[in-house]
Amino acid sequence: MSTAFLQPGTDGSQGGAGMPASPELADVTRDNASLRRFLHGLSGVDQVGAEARAAALATRSIKTTAKAWAIDTAISMVDLTTLEGADTHGKVRSLCAKAARPDPSDPSTPAVAAVCVYPDLVATAVESLAGTGVQTASVATAFPSGRASLQTKLHDVHDAVRAGATEIDMVIDRGAFLSGRYLDVFDEIVAVKQACGAAHLKVILETGELVTLDSVRRASWLALLAGGDFIKTSTGKVTPAATPPVALVMLQAVRDFAARTGDVRGVKLAGGIRTTKEAVRYLVMVNETAGDRWLNPHTFRFGASTLLNDLLQQRHKLTTGAYDGPDYVSID
């Protein structure tokens, strides 16, 4: 995987921090009332219908060559993640080695997209990933609760960026969102985007706390208007995390945003995706909802820790015909 795709200015699709995404949308973030009118003016989401559509997409049968393509594509989209209090420098180094060469016995296996760690471990990851093309992502903004002052959150972001993170995963203030203070959420995302500088910003909506699909749609648009490069489902610390109907609504949001502004933003699903079967189903959903333009790591990611091992085992089974079992892939 080339490193070029995440360097600023190379893909030309990024909105500036807090810059209006298109002239017709310039006015909607003027004040809270305008923003509220815009978000509440978005078409509603019928929960039953969205669930039915997500379930129908899950019945696609992906076999042989299609499965092989899907597995490799999914591997290249993984943000290999460790976000535990117990993380060590050693564990991060091990994870980085695996990220660059997920299957040392088969060099045709693609590298993952990024390694995702807490800010204090960014320097270790950057050092281990030097020259591999794998990005270093860091959670920031008082992850996972987001309960800190803006100043502290920005400081957190600066720390990670200074240590060399090229991607920042922030969490939105769900309390502000749910109580209707949309402009506060918007301003915070804009400020974080500015603090990111050249680093890409993924905005975590924590959809498990937003609960309704109407809220997911509104929060998606809010994050896109504010300049988020990606919208991301979850921290992984709250259940439910990524679910098929939520993914569907977020993919519709980036599709509609691109149609309206010409600006192609990404979606990252995180939390609870552990099997190849689920990952392939999500790729089908991307393909048939947003379109194949989104089927690459610039615009679609899986945030995961255990998913990669299942992808590797299924890949091995597809190439050799035999299933090795969990002892043949490394745990970190």
């Binding site: 049968s61 299609a66 594509t73 393909n287 379109g291 089927l295």
Partner: peptide
């Protein structure tokens, strides 16, 4: 045609 061609699954 798309990057993701579904193989026949009869």
């Amino acid at each position: 045609s798309t990057a993701f061609e579904y193989a026949p699954a009869p």
